[in-house]
Each structure stands twice: as structure tokens, then as C-alpha cells.
């Protein structure tokens, strides 16, 4: 019957449903006596839910419920210890007047835009490494290395690199006669400085995605393109990149998410400074709610809500484009 037949599970399920709807005890027609228990009748429709249940429960408990909690908490004033006091939209009103919030929001946007640079950079390195020379595995692992080490280590390494007095960067700049720059102490450079540090591992990540993607590129199409006279950039743009679309999509998703949750680098490299100029929303939320001086859970929650809404735009876009792709098949 169904499981042994070549039809897909879905069709099989539909078939069974149809039989069940018709009221015929289809399954047990032959051999054993009729078992009319509820479980027996609904086995097929219930099984997927049972398998999904652990996942759904965890998702509800660890994702949906906290989201709900953040939303409700953002209408309270609470120090995390005493009684929470309902203040309506006061926290959002505060956000509206809060310069630090706009600074964080602006930095978030800079992160979003600048971080995307990891995708072309990763593609470039992947194309460069997608060849067979002696020791290519070693080169690949060296390029992949920054992704393996912890973000905290990346942050520390770059902090030393940028150090205004002893750092390598200013040593190099001094060599070509440029006066020293205090990257992490200057409000105009600091966010870019941190993003560059973040791009180092993120590029490696995109590179790996593209390397696996390049393995799946169809050699016949390249052959065909070559016969039609495509070379170099035209080949890349019209033949290779379209085939890398799944890899690009994933790279885009992880980079956007990576940019929005940039936290550890900021914490390690500047602690939000100088005077709060390198904060992003996630860091600011942590600061007001959970850090040494933070006692404003409600305010932190309202920042979290704003961050969530920003993320929601992207999540909705991702889901929508995945849905479109599924539909097109």
C-alpha cells in the first residue's frame, strides 16, 4: 500500500484522508478485526504533530513566550527586583526623546549596510580559492580560520591592532607619514572600526557558503556558456552567480542576522564608548536593563521590541521569498 508505493507521503496522506472521510475502515478491511479507537482513525494525521510537538513546545516556550513577555514588559516600569508599575507607552515616549536611542539606531543601520560587504568579499575569496593547486586545503583553512576563533578574541586582536599608542595600525600609518588615528576613541571612526573587525570572520563565513555553492555549479552550463563566448565577468554574472543563488540567499540571511545581533564585539572593543557612540540597539538594551548600572527592565524591553520589529521586516522578507520559491517549484 501507500508506504511501499512510489507516491510521495503527501499524496499518500491525502488518499488515506479521503478513505477515512468516506467512512470506510479501509486499513483494516482484511485480516484483523476492526479497531475503531480515535487514535487508530487519526494516526496518520496526528503523527506529524507528535513529531513536531517537542520542537513546537520549545519554540513556544523559548521564543514566542519571551516575545510576548518583552511586549508586555515594555509597558511597565520595573527595576527587576521590586513591583512592576504599569506606565503605558511611557517607555516609548522616552525612547522618542532619547539621543542615545537614535545613535544606536543609526549605528544599527550602518552595521546593516556595511556588514553586507561580507557577501561580495566572501564570493571573491571563494572564487579565488576554488582551484586545484597544491596545498589549497591549507589556504582554505587559513581563510576560514577567523570564523573558528571566538568573537571575543577577534575583538581583542583588533583592539590591540587599533591601539592609538602601541597598535600596529598606527605603526603602519606612521610609516607612510600619516598621523596616528585613535579608531576606537573617535566617535566618527569607532563604529566602522568595529564593523571591519566583524567583517573578518563574517567574510570567512560567506566564503565557506560560496565554496560549497561553487561545488554545485553545473559544469555543463559553464561549457555551454563558453561555447557561446562568455568569459570573465560576463560568465560570472550570467552563469555562475545565478547558480549560486541559494548560497547568496543564506549568506544574506546570516549576514543580516549577524549585523543585527552585533553585540560581543562592541562589548569587548569599546563597551559602547566613547560616550556611547558605538552602541547598537542590542547593546543599548543590555546596558539599560542588565548591565552594572542598568535597572530599567521596561525600557530595555521597549528597545527590544523596536529591534524585534526591525528584524521582523527582514524575517517577513525572508519567509516571503522562501515561500515564493517553494511556489515556483
Amino acid at each position: 500500500m501507500c508506504p511501499s508505493s512510489p507516491v510521495s507521503i503527501d499524496t499518500c496522506y491525502v488518499k488515506r484522508q479521503a478513505m477515512a472521510d468516506a467512512g470506510a475502515p479501509a486499513v483494516s478491511q482484511h485480516n484483523k478485526p476492526v479497531k475503531n479507537s480515535w487514535w487508530h482513525n487519526n494516526q496518520q494525521s496526528m503523527t506529524p504533530w507528535l513529531f513536531l510537538a517537542p520542537g513546537i513546545l520549545f519554540f513556544l516556550f523559548y521564543v514566542i513566550f519571551p516575545i510576548y513577555q518583552s511586549f508586555s514588559l515594555s509597558f511597565y516600569s520595573w527595576d527587576g527586583l521590586g513591583e512592576a508599575e504599569y506606565v503605558g507607552a511611557y517607555n516609548y515616549e522616552e525612547l522618542y526623546w532619547d539621543d542615545a536611542f537614535y545613535t544606536s539606531l543609526r549605528n544599527n543601520l550602518i552595521w546593516l549596510v556595511m556588514y553586507l560587504f561580507a557577501i561580495p568579499a566572501g564570493l571573491f575569496i571563494a572564487l579565488f580559492l576554488n582551484q586545484t593547486v597544491t596545498g589549497i586545503r591549507l589556504y582554505k583553512s587559513l581563510f576560514f580560520f577567523p570564523f573558528v576563533i571566538s568573537q571575543v578574541v577577534v575583538g581583542l586582536v583588533f583592539t590591540w591592532f587599533y591601539d592609538p599608542t602601541f597598535g600596529l595600525l598606527n605603526y603602519i600609518l606612521g610609516g607612510v607619514g600619516i598621523p596616528p588615528i585613535n579608531v576606537l576613541g573617535d566617535e566618527n571612526f569607532v563604529t566602522y572600526g568595529i564593523i571591519v573587525a566583524g567583517l573578518w570572520p563574517q567574510t570567512a563565513y560567506c566564503m565557506i557558503l560560496y565554496l560549497t555553492g561553487l561545488n554545485a555549479v553545473d559544469p555543463e552550463q559553464i561549457e555551454a556558456g563558453r561555447l557561446d563566448g562568455a568569459k570573465g565577468l560576463r560568465m560570472l554574472w550570467h552563469i555562475i552567480i545565478p547558480q549560486l543563488r541559494p548560497a547568496t540567499f543564506i549568506a544574506f540571511v546570516v549576514t543580516i542576522i549577524g549585523a543585527l545581533r552585533s553585540f560581543d564585539l562592541i562589548s569587548v572593543m569599546t563597551n559602547g564608548g566613547p560616550y556611547g557612540e558605538s552602541r547598537v540597539l542590542s547593546f543599548y538594551m543590555f546596558e539599560v536593563a542588565l548591565s552594572e548600572y542598568g535597572f530599567r527592565m521596561g525600557y530595555g524591553a521597549s528597545i527590544a521590541v523596536v529591534l524585534f520589529l526591525i528584524m521582523l521586516v527582514f524575517i517577513a522578507y525572508f519567509l516571503w521569498s522562501m515561500y515564493q520559491e517553494e511556489k515556483a517549484r
Binding site: G273, P274, Y275, G276, Y293, F295
Partner: peptide, 12 residues
Amino acid sequence: AEMAKVAMEGLQ
């Protein structure tokens, strides 16, 4: 704590 944080940032 809250005032200290804002103020010290201003001092810096």
C-alpha cells in the same frame, strides 16, 4: 545607578 551611568558618560 541610572544617573551615575548617564552622568559619567557625559563626563567622559
